[in-house]
């Protein structure tokens, strides 16, 4: 989906990986960022992956470059550290656990991944890796630093689809 009209019709939205600066600027161009925010406030479930989680956050800073002025949705009261584990050469695969949503084992693909450096008390931490927060949830909003869309494990997708079904009832 590319336009605000597309967003209006949705019951749930997954913002996948990509470049958060690019996605943010493009959604600003056609005002879909505002519509996405209204839909989230109205209870639409959203899953933000990597760049998508950055977009959901309140503030984002790059590990090297510092605070970025990119457009953000400001829906999750968290502070994001971009490129938290380093550049592409440091990208990695590792097993993580999201026990509170009954996914005790998940193969995480971390590509120039961000992490949550500060989270407000109303934000639930779903997973940590090396003491860094890599998955969070607040009501209808989920953010992950890793890429469930690049693996064959669909457990997180299933969990998200259930959230969407519940929100329709």
């Amino acid at each position: 989906m590319k336009t605000a009209d597309d967003v209006e019709k949705l019951d749930g939205l997954i913002i996948p990986g990509g470049e958060s600066t690019t996605i943010g600027q493009l959604s600003l161009v056609n005002s879909s960022l505002r519509v996405i925010k209204e839909k989230i406030d109205g209870g639409m479930p959203i899953l933000g992956i990597c760049a998508g989680m950055i977009l959901l956050s309140k503030t984002a800073a790059d590990r090297v470059v510092g605070k970025t002025n990119q457009p953000l949705l400001d829906s999750l009261d968290v502070k994001l550290e971009r490129n938290s584990f380093g550049r592409q050469r440091e990208s990695f695969e590792a097993e993580i656990a999201m026990d509170s949503i009954n996914i005790p084992k998940f193969h995480g693909i971390f590509i120039r991944a961000p992490s949550v450096s500060e989270a407000n008390s109303d934000v639930e931490v779903l997973a940590k890796f090396n003491e860094k927060i890599v998955a969070v949830k607040k009501g209808n909003i989920i953010g992950t630093a890793f890429h469930p869309e690049l693996t064959s494990d669909v457990s997180l997708h299933k969990y998200f689809v259930n959230l969407v079904k519940e929100s329709k009832n």
Partner: peptide, 20 residues
């Protein structure tokens, strides 16, 4: 990496980067 086993440089990570 700390107590965790990790893999770097796999095709998933490399092709996944391009995919982004």
């Amino acid at each position: 990496s700390d107590a965790n086993e990790i893999i770097r440089g796999s095709s998933t990570l490399k092709r996944g980067f391009a995919h982004m």
